[in-house]
Write a protein that binds this DNA or RNA. Structure first.
Lengths: 140, 140
DNA sequence: CAGCATCCATTCAGATACTG
DNA sequence: CAGTATCTGAATGGATGCTG
């Protein structure tokens, strides 16, 4: 327990949250947003785009696509629109020909990345444990 | 930035992670696990089951189903199997008739819940911001 | 009781073609 | 260049029926 990568205040708060999460106690809007958010980040492209924009600060559409190998431009567009709608990225259209559109993380988007750092850290710390559990399960 | 719900060490670590996440720098197994994990948690049932088992410690199949309104028993079974495989829950079969199967979180499962507390906190703190961004976007 | 198996509707994502 | 529109195969999840 004390090996958790959080300070005591955060852990206490986590406990409070965990203990208060029967649907009745927890603000349903927060719960909906969390599900929503986790679902968003889980589509896997959002996280990668977030990383690319964290690293490069500002990218245009095609550059971004190159940073995210394997993404179709349909998914790129779609994901960026969602992120824009949620206030995670800004989209700047330059009225030139050929068109040029720049994408950049907002503070909100940056902080979302930081919020998920706990999950990254957990994954780093527990990778071998999960792999061992899977191996054990798969061998009956 | 200083309003993040993390202590300095965690924030520093998050930054290090964020700066080191171009595919080349980051252990691909960790990256795969994170995606995997986030995807798992994002299916929305995993998180709710995790909460139910955090609150009740030990539950049998049908009890668990009652704690998760709206879940089909197909999804309940499937999600529990995945969680068992990943080492998040233990599954104890009592050889009695009628059958009785108890589910319980492992330490790993509990710590996963704590890892996601950062996301919950972020959602709490930024709910109004996201809602405002969406409203603004939807009105053109 | 605790599932597994099957069927079915809906969603989703990739590929392709087209446009200002 | 930065998209939009359309089609299609694949994956998802719910409902139902059956079993030890």
């Amino acid at each position: 327990m004390s090996s958790l990568p959080f300070d005591d205040a955060t852990i206490r708060r986590a406990r409070r949250i965990a203990e208060n999460t029967p649907p009745a106690e927890c603000d349903p809007r927060v719960e909906a947003l969390v599900n929503d958010l986790i679902g968003r980040v889980a589509d896997k492209w959002t996280m990668i785009i977030l990383e690319a924009l964290t690293e490069h600060e500002e990218l245009r559409f095609t550059q971004l696509g190159r940073q995210v190998p394997g993404i179709s431009q349909k998914m790129l567009t779609q994901t960026l629109r969602q992120m824009e709608r949620d206030g995670m990225v800004t989209r700047t259209v330059h009225p030139v020909i050929p068109p040029r559109v720049d994408y950049r993380l907002t503070d909100l988007g940056q902080s979302l990345g930081a919020a998920f750092c706990g999950v990254w850290i957990w994954a780093e710390d527990n990778l071998t444990r999960v792999e061992a559990a899977r191996a054990a399960f798969d061998n009956r």
